[in-house]
Design a binder for these strands. Structure first.
Lengths: 197, 197
DNA sequence: CTGTTAATACCGACCGGATGGTATGTATAA
DNA sequence: TTATACATACCATCCGGTCGGTATTAACAG
């Protein structure tokens, strides 16, 4: 009944429906029906359908960002970031959703949301780059390239897993990624073996 | 005026519009307007809007598949496949389109299209795996994992490039990918240096 | 304690524009 | 005359958003 609580409830319901049926595939009518309310209530709490989408994006994006901050300690490894991305991905119920990408696309079509996400994305990359252990690349440019590589791979893995769940095995892919990336390390051959685990 | 020609024309127009504005963002009315026709004509040549989407998918998918066949020679390298994927991607005008993923998602929602694409996707992976040079992995399982890795990275790269064009530099990412993957090769250290370029 | 006012939270009928699809008619060519 | 390749008008439905109204509660005045 209090506004804040209702908004959270509606956010939760909308989020579930969007993930299940996509943004356009979900009607405002459905959202309020599932929340045992009516459209009047919805438009009392939100200005538009896009508005609630933005709210959902901010929520999720913030979750990613905070988790990212937690891993961002000096000497971090690409694998740490990738695993963080994947764990948040899973915890946010994005994992089972084939519509995740659809919602993302819808989001980036809306200027306000697009700007917000771009900013967050940039911050993520820079944070990643700055914390990455020096042994993964001599120059900052090299390490930044590796950051983007990791992000790209995460995204591709997520998209592919959502689309063909049976084909992709996340665990194996993670191992392969780790194995490949670890070969980048220089001057760590001596102490390297005792370095991970 | 002849049916076959008209269908190709409509396919071309629809394809452009879908890439520009997304599937749902494009109306049948727009398609026929741009082709200087009317809806009557459209529904004479196609059964539905989904029908023309399926046709477009088959067209594109076939292009990918044939290009893949061309690269699939024994001893192939992951980089060859990745470059092929990216070149077709570009040649099919997917590169500039932020809606590519949207269309894909829309496509996989339609059972008929989903089945078709899944089959093609599987074939691609198996073909890739079978041709991959033995030095990239001892067991077939290992090489298959690498194939999926390559596919995933391609997809992630494409998605990311479409979304944040300024951030992602395809060339650098390709180089990094190549460098990483080449470290997998075993027993090629002696003659390895003269092997690529 | 009572009456008035006002803000909050919500209902439900309705609007209006968009849009996929259809039905009917028609010009042209074989 | 018959099939092809369209045009035109129209339908049915969906859906985001609006708007007038209302129940509830709280604050405050008399």
């Amino acid at each position: 009944m209090p506004a804040e609580q209702r908004q959270k409830q509606l956010l939760g319901v909308a989020r579930k429906l969007f993930l299940k049926k996509g943004y356009r595939g979900t009607t405002v009518e459905e959202i309020v029906r599932k929340a045992h309310l009516t459209k009047g209530a919805f438009y009392y709490h939100f200005n538009s359908k896009e508005d609630i989408l933005l709210a959902i994006f901010k929520e999720t994006s913030e979750r990613f960002y905070r988790a990212f901050e937690a891993v961002s300690k000096p000497g971090a490894r690409p694998n740490d970031f990738l695993m963080t991305l994947l764990s948040i991905h899973k915890a946010s119920n994005l994992a089972e959703s084939r519509n995740m990408v659809d919602i993302w696309t819808q989001g980036t079509r809306i200027p306000k949301i697009h700007r917000y996400l771009e900013k967050r994305h940039q911050q993520g990359i820079e944070m990643f780059t700055d914390c990455l252990d020096r042994s993964y690349g001599r120059t900052r440019k090299e390490r930044r390239e590796l950051a983007i590589f990791t992000f790209s791979f995460y995204e591709g893995l997520a998209v592919r897993k959502a689309r063909w769940p049976k084909v992709v095995d996340i665990e194996s892919q993670l191992k392969l990624f780790s194995r490949l990336v670890e070969t980048l390390r220089q001057g760590e051959t001596a102490k390297g073996k005792s370095h991970h685990n």
